[in-house]
C-alpha cells in the first residue's frame, strides 16, 4: 500500500486546435495523502479542468501515470469491469448543479442506480446517503427541477458517496452557488472528509473558496504548475509572481480594475506571452 491515495506523475495532454496545438497539461505531478484535500487553482484555459477530466477518465492523457492507492489506472478503460473499477476509485462532482443530474430520475432513483451499478442496493442506504449530505428523506422523491442549486449539489455529492470512492474530484462544484449555500456545501465537504477519509481534489478559480477546504494547493498557468505548497503558505506568502498576481487581482479593499490590468500586462511581458 502506498502512502498516498492519489499519485499523479508526468501527466501530459495537448489538444489540436486548427493547425496548431494547445498544451493543456504539461508534465503535471502531484500527490494527495489519505484524507487529504488538494486545491487546483488557475484561470480558464489553465488546464485545471482537463486534469480533473483525465483523472476520472473523461479525457485520455497523452502520457503520464495515475495511481490510486498504489494501483495504476489505465489511460483509457476498455470493458465494463475496468470502467467500474476506475469509477470505484475516483468520482467527480460537476460545476453545473442544473445539468449534472438526469432530469428524468428522482433523487432516490439516481442514487439507487449508481449503487446498483456497483452491486449494492437497498433503500436504507439511500436514506443514509440523503442524511449524510444533509437532505431529508422526502427529497428522495423529488426530481432535480424541484430542488434548489445547493440541494442538487448535495445530491451530486451523495451520488459520489454512493459509490464509496477513494478520491472525489470537485470541478468548480460550488462556483454557481450563493455564498451562504456555498459555505454550507464547503462545511459538508469538510465533514465528509473528516468522517470518511475520502481525499478531495478541489478544482476552482476561486482562491478564497479553495482556502477554506484544502490543505495544499497547486497553482496552474497555461498547463503547468507554477507553485505548490500548503494552502496557507501559498495564499498568504506566495512565491510565484503569478500567484501574487492572481491574489492581487481579486476584488477587495482598494481594488482598482485598471491596476489589475497593468500588473497583468507587466506579468505577461515578463513571461513573454
Amino acid at each position: 500500500m502506498s502512502e498516498y491515495v492519489l499519485e499523479v506523475d508526468g501527466l501530459q495532454k495537448a489538444f489540436r486546435v486548427g493547425a496548431g496545438e494547445v498544451v493543456a497539461c504539461n508534465n503535471v505531478s502531484f500527490t494527495i495523502p489519505p484524507g487529504g484535500s488538494m486545491g487546483l487553482v488557475g484561470e480558464s484555459g489553465s488546464g485545471k479542468s482537463t486534469i480533473a477530466r483525465m483523472l476520472v477518465g473523461l479525457e485520455t492523457p497523452d502520457a503520464g501515470t495515475i495511481h490510486v492507492r498504489g494501483r495504476q489506472l489505465g489511460l483509457q478503460e476498455r470493458g465494463r469491469a475496468a470502467r467500474l473499477r476506475r469509477a470505484k476509485e475516483i468520482q467527480m462532482v460537476f460545476q453545473d448543479p442544473y445539468g449534472s443530474l438526469d432530469r428524468r430520475l428522482t433523487v432516490a432513483q439516481c442514487l439507487d442506480q449508481a449503487m446498483r451499478l456497483h452491486g449494492v442496493s437497498g433503500s436504507a442506504r439511500v436514506a443514509a446517503l440523503l442524511d449524510q449530505v444533509g437532505l431529508l428523506a422526502k427529497h428522495g422523491d423529488s426530481k432535480p427541477h424541484q430542488l434548489s442549486g445547493g440541494q442538487r449539489q448535495r445530491v451530486a455529492i451523495a451520488r459520489c458517496l454512493a459509490i464509496e470512492p477513494s478520491v472525489m474530484v470537485l470541478d468548480e462544484a460550488v462556483s454557481a452557488l450563493d455564498v451562504s449555500v456555498q459555505a454550507q456545501i464547503l462545511a459538508l465537504l469538510n465533514e465528509i472528509r473528516a468522517s470518511s477519509g475520502i481525499a478531495l481534489l478541489f478544482v476552482s478559480h476561486d482562491l478564497a473558496v479553495v482556502s477554506e477546504v484544502t490543505d495544499d494547493v497547486l497553482v496552474m498557468y497555461r498547463g503547468s504548475i507554477l507553485e505548490q505548497g500548503p494552502t496557507g503558505r501559498v495564499l498568504n506568502a506566495p512565491e510565484s509572481s503569478y500567484t501574487k498576481l492572481l491574489i492581487s487581482s481579486m476584488p477587495g479593499p482598494g481594488w482598482d480594475p485598471a491596476d489589475v490590468l497593468e500588473r497583468r500586462a507587466a506579468f505577461e511581458a515578463k513571461v513573454g506571452v
Binding site: L58, R83, L84, A87, K88, F94, G99, S100, R103, I163
Partner: peptide, 14 residues
C-alpha cells in the same frame, strides 16, 4: 453535451 452524461460515464456506465 449535458453534464449528466459525463456524470454517468464517471460512474462507470458504458
Amino acid at each position: 453535451a449535458r453534464p449528466y452524461v459525463d456524470a454517468y460515464r464517471v460512474q462507470g456506465v458504458g
